[in-house]
Each structure stands twice: as C-alpha cells, then as structure tokens.
Computed example of a mutant assay.
Amino acid sequence: MRETMVNSYELNVGEYFMNVEDIPETPEEIKAYIPKLMPNIEMGEEAKTDIKYITNPSIFVNSGECKVHGLKPVIDGQNFVTLKHYNNEYPNFRAKAEFRDGEYIVPKHNTFTLEVQHEDIHSMYFTGKE
C-alpha cells in the first residue's frame, strides 16, 4: 500500500516542501506542507490542526452483513506532516534565515528538500540539500 501511495502521488526520492511555521536555523523537526502529497489541502498562513473533513459512509459498497461500523461522520485533519532530519545529519539553513531578536529564524513558506526512503511515506526526512 505504501508503494502505491508513493507511485500514485508520484513522489520523488528527493521532493520539495515548505515549512508552515517559522523555524530555527538548525531545526530538530519541521512542520512540512508537501504539495504532491497534499494536493487537496491548502497550505494556508500557519500550521493548522483543526481542519474538518466530512466522511461519506456510502462510498463502501458492502452488503448488510459486511457493513462498515464505527466510521465517524467528521474526521480531523491538518495542513502539515512533521519531518525530522536523519540521525547523522544536522542541516543548517542560515542562508534562508533572518536575524530576529538575537537569533536566526527561517520564516515560514520557505522551500526545502526531503528524501523518501524505500518508497515508504512513513520514512521521509528533511535534508540540507538544495
């Protein structure tokens, strides 16, 4: 299934994304908006965790004895996934940073690169590559 997800969204091994909030110049994690993975979700002006999606239980064409139970009518969504860096890499983005209040901050909506390992969307890491 994961391979199908990577193939259907045509994610590359090196894919681009944008940060949805300000980050330090050497972040431990980034809240990332990935356009190819989130084509129907707006990036917006900030990280949002209160997006609501209405579900449609009639999409499951099952007989009465195979009915889908427990489907919530409304599910929660967000406009980002949280990415970490590789354990042996500590990317520094000073070239994209602004000096604010005594520290370097990378403003939201900058573009970065992530890597997808083994065609598994659960193994995505941000990198310092341009």
Rank of each mutant, 00 (worst) to 15 (best):
L37N: 08
T26V: 08
Y33N: 03
K31I: 11
P39Y: 07
K52T: 03
A47I: 02
N40T: 09
T55D: 00
I54Y: 00
V61A: 10
P27A: 09
M38E: 11
M38I: 07
A47L: 07
Y53I: 00
M43K: 10
S58V: 07
S58W: 15
L37M: 15
N40W: 10
A32Q: 01
E28P: 01
I30M: 14
I54E: 02
N40K: 09
P39G: 06
I34Y: 04
T26F: 01
I30R: 01
E29W: 06
P57E: 10
N56W: 07
E46K: 08
I54G: 00
G44L: 10
Y33M: 10
E29R: 04
Y53R: 00
P27H: 05
N56V: 02
K48G: 00
Y33L: 06
P57S: 05
G44H: 08
I34N: 04
P39C: 07
K52S: 01
K36C: 12
Y33K: 01
I30H: 07
I41M: 07
N56R: 06
K52N: 02
S58P: 03
K36E: 03
P27T: 14
K31L: 06
E29M: 12
P39T: 09
F60Q: 14
F60S: 07
T49S: 03
D50V: 06
A47M: 03
E42D: 13
G44Q: 09
E45A: 14
E42A: 08
K31C: 13
S58L: 13
Y33E: 14
K52P: 01
F60H: 04
M38C: 13
P39R: 08
F60N: 15
G44T: 15
P35W: 09
E29Q: 14
D50K: 12
E28H: 10
P57D: 14
M38F: 05
I51R: 04
I34D: 12
I41L: 08
D50T: 03
